[in-house]
Simulated assay, not measured.
Amino acid sequence: MGKSAVVLGATGQIGVAVVERLVRDGWEVRAVSRGGGPRVVWPVGSGVRTVHLDRNDDRALVRVVGEGCDVLVDCVAFGSRHGAQLAALGDRVGSAAVISTCMVYRDDDGVGFDALPGACPRFTGPVTEEQATVAPDDTTYAGGKVALERVLLESAPFPVTLLRAGMVHGAGSAAPREWYFVKRALDRRPVRLLAHRGAGICHPSAARNLAELVLAAAVRPGDRVLNVGDPAPPTVRAMAAAVDEVLGHEAEEYLIDGPGEPGLGQTPWSLRRSFVMDMGLAGRELGYRPVCDYAGSLPETVAWLVETARGRDWREAFPRLAARWGPTAFDYAAEDRAIAAGQVGGRPLVPAGRE
Rank of each mutant, 00 (worst) to 15 (best):
V23M: 07
V23Y: 08
H249F: 08
G83R: 06
S155T: 15
M103V: 13
A207Q: 07
R21W: 03
I14R: 04
E355Y: 09
P319D: 02
P234K: 03
W325I: 00
L281P: 06
R310S: 11
E261G: 09
G258C: 07
V6F: 02
A195G: 15
V76H: 07
V182A: 12
E245S: 12
A84D: 10
T267H: 03
Q13W: 04
G346T: 10
L264H: 13
A132C: 07
T328S: 15
A309K: 01
W42F: 10
T11C: 06
V214E: 01
N209M: 04
V51M: 10
W269C: 08
G172T: 02
V41S: 14
R220T: 13
C120T: 12
T11I: 08
A88I: 07
Q85D: 12
L8Y: 05
L264T: 14
T133C: 15
E245K: 11
L213T: 08
L286M: 05
V62W: 13
L86F: 08
L298E: 03
F113Y: 13
A242G: 02
T11K: 01
A77G: 07
G170W: 00
G263Q: 13
P319R: 00
R320S: 09
R237C: 12
G229P: 04
F113G: 08
Y254P: 10
S46G: 09
P190H: 08
G200L: 06
G36K: 09
Q131G: 06
Q343P: 07
A333N: 11
D187W: 06
L89G: 03
L8D: 03
F158E: 07
V344Q: 12
N56F: 15
M279R: 05
E129G: 04
A165K: 05
V111C: 12
P234I: 00
G90M: 10
D108Q: 15
G37N: 05
L194V: 14
R354P: 01
H82W: 03
R320P: 02
Y294W: 13
R310H: 13
L210D: 00
V62Q: 15
G37S: 14
P231H: 02
R177G: 02
V62I: 15
L186H: 09
Q85Y: 09
A206D: 12
A195Y: 10
E129Y: 11
V51Y: 11
L61I: 10
G47Q: 03
S95P: 06
I201K: 01
A251Y: 11
V182S: 10
V73L: 01
V214I: 07
R63H: 11
G37K: 07
C75N: 14
G296H: 00
D187Q: 10
